[in-house]
């Protein structure tokens, strides 16, 4: 049998090469896109874990011991109060029914101090729950480090309390702990949002 011994023409080669290049570029774009997504997902996962761990730790104490009182001790002048010496930006003390106390607070962030921004944390019961942020090596002129942060912590409304009186005359206090934690890439709030009532019956 006679073989077809003709090679590809230059046009065929160019067309094939173009198609392969087109496919490769397309694939590269997809891979890069997923690479970015993976990095973003990892960041989201870290923030989710942060929120879940801290929320669970605080709620576990609340459900086990019951909240008797929560006080904002940010500006305490009592030297024996842990909030006095911890150097936190905002600091609240949770007192449980068994009279144990635990401190919750946010770290101080200095707009011009890179370390304070990349190492910010929420403090609870002796543990620093870190919110690792990333900043570029050099600061663009006319900017403050705080302008470049990805993770933002808002603690203005860290503690709110209301009360009501039940039919039997018992006063019930309800405390809301709100620390917002947001990331510029995500719409979700990864903060701590806890509602605790002194009308406690346990789990």
């Amino acid at each position: 049998m006679k073989l077809n011994n003709k090679a590809m023409s230059i046009v065929e080669v160019i067309v094939t090469f173009s198609m392969i290049m087109f496919l490769l570029v397309g694939l590269l774009v997809i891979v890069m896109n997923y690479r970015n997504k993976m990095a973003v997902s990892l960041e989201e996962l870290n923030l989710d874990s942060f929120k879940n761990n801290l929320t669970q730790d605080i709620n576990k104490d609340i459900l086990t011991n019951g909240v008797k009182e929560i006080t904002d001790d940010t500006n305490t002048t009592d030297t024996s109060n842990p909030c006095y010496s911890l150097g936190l930006n905002r600091c609240i003390t949770i007192t449980f029914y068994n009279n144990t106390k635990k401190v919750l607070g946010t770290s101080k962030v200095n707009p011009n101090n890179k370390d304070s921004i990349i190492n910010k944390y929420i403090y609870y019961d002796g543990i620093k729950y870190k919110l690792k942020d990333e900043l570029p090596n050099t600061l663009p002129e006319g900017r403050a480090w705080i302008d470049l942060e990805s993770i933002k912590v808002v603690d203005d409304a860290i503690l709110d309390s209301s009360y009501t009186v039940l039919e039997d005359g018992t006063q019930v206090n309800i405390y809301t702990i709100d620390i917002e934690v947001s990331h510029i890439d995500f719409k979700d709030d990864f903060g701590i949002h806890i509602v605790a009532s002194t009308d406690y019956i346990g789990m």
Partner: peptide, 9 residues
């Protein structure tokens, strides 16, 4: 569920 009391309450 009956109310749960806490030790030391």
């Amino acid at each position: 569920t009956n109310p749960k009391f806490l030790m030391g309450e």
